[in-house]
Design a protein around this nucleic acid. Structure first.
Lengths: 140, 140
DNA sequence: ATAAATGCAAATGATTTGCAGGCTC
DNA sequence: GAGCCTGCAAATCATTTGCATTTAT
């Protein structure tokens, strides 16, 4: 799926929720749709600005939280750094962070997901959401 | 192990690292040693103050980070709240947070630990540390 | 037309830090 | 006695918010 298509899907989701698509938001959606990495609010602000969109950082934050509320993007809060964001389109995955380089990788493991659900169930709970982050170093 | 014994073990660890044991730190160590919950900096500050120790919040933070550096306590950063701390004496465990009540529970699962190590290894990494949090709701 | 969104600057909240005087080793 | 510690207040940093003005629908 190309960037424009994905951006339009984001727009639909927002419109459906009654959120207005302003010039700023349209620009942000495109930046997000094209982000292969996991940018933070400030990086998104930079990218949108470079793309010629007149956007303020406050609006970036406000838009990000609207998008998060609509479930269009996910907020990632890794240790010791500002929150990062990623499109929420794919399937659920967890993250692995290289502590030397800062690189963020994604991974999926069905067995871990199942075990988590079992653990919660055994204690009489159901999982609302979870957070699994592996801080790793390249093996020598 | 009683509170005083644990507090003294904390002191030893700090002394060994060349950190001075001041009246404030001694008090903090006792508060931490006696904490069955997972208090944040401000709660520790309150408790130490109530216990009659004249401590400032700045010193609480400075002491907590010294303790963390020495590996005596662990810092927990759950979503949307100030950092909490717990003594690092027991075996490793992860946390489950009841999103309704805020209650924090601990759990251990060897299989999940092993799977995490395997996942990292498959991608050529070794785990430095990890974070696994289950945000749960009591089953209806 | 009207309610929602924007930009700016000021406010927040948690945590950190500079500095002058104190206290531990 | 020397240097680490402390308390205080001011500084940071990411994020949020009040308000007057603009804009999408």
């Amino acid at each position: 799926m190309d960037i424009e298509t994905r951006a339009q899907e984001f727009e639909q989701a927002l419109r459906r929720a009654g959120v207005r698509i302003t010039r700023q938001r349209a620009a942000l959606l495109r930046v997000l749709a094209g982000a292969g990495d996991h940018p933070d609010a400030n990086q998104l602000y930079q990218r949108a600005s470079e793309a010629g969109a007149g956007v303020s950082l406050a609006t970036v934050y406000r838009t990000l939280s609207a998008l998060e509320t609509q479930g269009v993007i996910l907020k990632l809060e890794f240790e010791g750094e500002p929150a990062r964001f990623e499109p929420a389109d794919g399937r659920h995955h967890d993250h692995m962070i290289d502590v030397e380089t800062g690189e963020v990788m994604e991974f999926v493991n069905e067995r871990i997901e199942r075990l988590q659900a079992e653990i919660a169930a055994e204690m009489g709970y159901e999982i609302v959401r979870h957070r699994l982050e592996l801080y790793v170093r390249r093996k020598t």
